[in-house]
Simulated scan of single mutants.
Amino acid sequence: MAINTWLDGAYRPLRRASVWGGGYQPLKRALVWDGGQYKVVWEAAASYYDNFERPDGSPGSNWFRRPYGNTAVVPVISGGSLRAAPTPTNNQNNQCSGVYLPQCTTDDLAVRATVTRDSNGLSGGLLVGCDQYIAMGLAVSFTSATAHRGVWSIVNSNWVRRVDTALSCTTGDVIEVTRVGTYYSVYKNGVAQTNWNDSTGIVPRGIGNRGGGYHGHSDVNLFGSANYGMTIGDITIYDIVS
């Protein structure tokens, strides 16, 4: 719910509020008493950023990581980027995902990242509108690989492709996925690439389904040669405020 304030002859959405406590402090949430309980009427827009500039290994306690296959393959920091951990067994490929646990405050949100390696024939991409276990949400895979490309809904941990399209990216590209209302849109370097209208509400929205993150892929061929998919050098997850 938004609070409007009168400004320049019109009511406009309140984006930032402060309270006095020996100095002005940002107000994060406003509540009103309706006679039976307090109700939230306004929350400050959220914005989170991670640049992975720390030692290699786990990205830390702000991330929940989920393997799909070998349990050793989860998102890890490697050289300042987030990527899928190496697949440890020859002739295997494994996917994984990770969600940033602090969530946005509204259903309209965006996830943006800088690419540090392209998919190289595997998959990799962004998650938006996820719960804390990545059982719900939406994934976008930036690859031309037929089996993995496009836009996928995630419901009860089942991935179903909703848009079958090749989405390319290369080092230095800025990719972004937004959710506004029922529309999910995909951008690369600010240019729209594809979209999907979840008009029947397949992907849950609401509190608990406002997270963002990353999904990755690694493999090893029969002869032990390793490969991995798209990596990102930073990620921003934020509320879209009109």
Rank of each mutant, 00 (worst) to 15 (best):
M1K: 08
M1D: 15
A2H: 12
A2L: 13
N4K: 15
T5L: 11
W6T: 02
P13I: 06
R16A: 15
V19F: 11
G21N: 14
G22P: 03
Y24H: 07
P26Y: 01
L27M: 12
A30F: 05
A30H: 05
W33C: 02
K39G: 13
V41T: 07
W42E: 06
D56I: 03
N62F: 15
R65P: 06
R65Y: 04
R66H: 11
Y68L: 10
G69E: 05
V76N: 08
S78T: 12
T87N: 14
T87V: 12
N91K: 02
N94F: 07
V99G: 06
V99L: 01
L101E: 05
Q103K: 06
T105A: 09
L109F: 12
A110V: 14
V111W: 06
A113Y: 03
G121D: 04
G125E: 04
L126I: 03
D131N: 13
Y133M: 09
F142A: 05
T143G: 05
A145T: 12
T146S: 15
A147T: 05
A147L: 07
R149H: 06
I175L: 09
I175P: 02
E176Y: 10
V177Y: 00
T178W: 00
T178H: 11
A192Q: 12
N197P: 05
N197S: 11
D198W: 11
T200H: 02
T200V: 14
G201P: 09
Y214F: 14
H217W: 13
D219Y: 07
G224S: 05
N227I: 05
N227M: 04
M230E: 00
T231E: 12
D234T: 00
T236H: 04
Y238I: 04
D239T: 08
